[in-house]
Amino acid sequence: MKTTRLALAAGAVPLTALGGAWALQGAWSARLPEVVAVHWGTSGPDRSSTLSTLTGVTLGIGAALTLVTLVAVLASRARGSAVPRSAVGFTAGMAALPAGVLVGSMYAALDTTSWREAGSAWSAVVWALGLSVVAGAIAALVAGRTERRASPEPRDLPSAGLQPGERATWIGGGTNYPMTFGGLAVACGYGLLQVSLPDFDVMPFALVVLVVVLAMAATCRVRVRVDADGVALSLGLFGFPHRTLTFDEIASADTEQMTMWSAGGYGLRRGVGYTAFKVRAGEALAVTLTSGHVVKATVDHADRAAGLVNDLVAARQSA
């Protein structure tokens, strides 16, 4: 049932918008010139296209976007991921945007004989964005509430075997080495290019390279410390963002396997019911809070960290 709703939201809603634009083009054909304005400058329309070309291009792009959206949504659903209704609404709205562009251009050209007589750009923009927003809102409504993922089968939680009176700390982390050295390689490559080609005007790319290197540095490593105070997590070489979970808010801890696509990518990821400090695929520490929210971190030997968290939670409850 949920899959049908998602398919309707991601596929049928944008297709309806595209079909509506197509029908409107047929209904207005007698009132439209053969060539319509497609771009406006400060002094009015400055670029044009034949109506048939504009119709073909916009509806073609819209159909392609709809297909991509539909496949992505159904694939996420098939993988068991929660598909947020906001994401469905946004992507369906984007897929319907070309239909809005077509309707906007046609509306501006209504009852004119030349594309230069086209009306205000604002009416075209309002039609384009308006149709997109309405389609997105309808898709979000059709998609319905976001389903939380079903809880895994209950099993014994890991333990580090901490005895009463013992103190312990677990300090560890996970590193994405390709990302770490990739940032370095990008910086070195750019430096070499700049030195070897002094006439080559590559300085404008320095900012892009800097952003790439900083992004890689900020997400190449995650560090976790578990001790009597709680669980401290930090991301990247700069240790930011960081978060400390106290045992007042921790219910339990376990491990899980994350794939490259889990949580939608690398870095600090937020989704329905979880926050992930993710730098690689593979084993991850998953700390469940009393609120039901799960905080994940892709660290090596996560079972030992989870075991210590559970032992410290149990010790606190028995005290």
Partner: peptide, 9 residues
């Protein structure tokens, strides 16, 4: 790495 101590040991 897990480091544990028992102060009573």
């Amino acid at each position: 790495m897990l480091i544990r101590i028992d102060p009573a040991s």
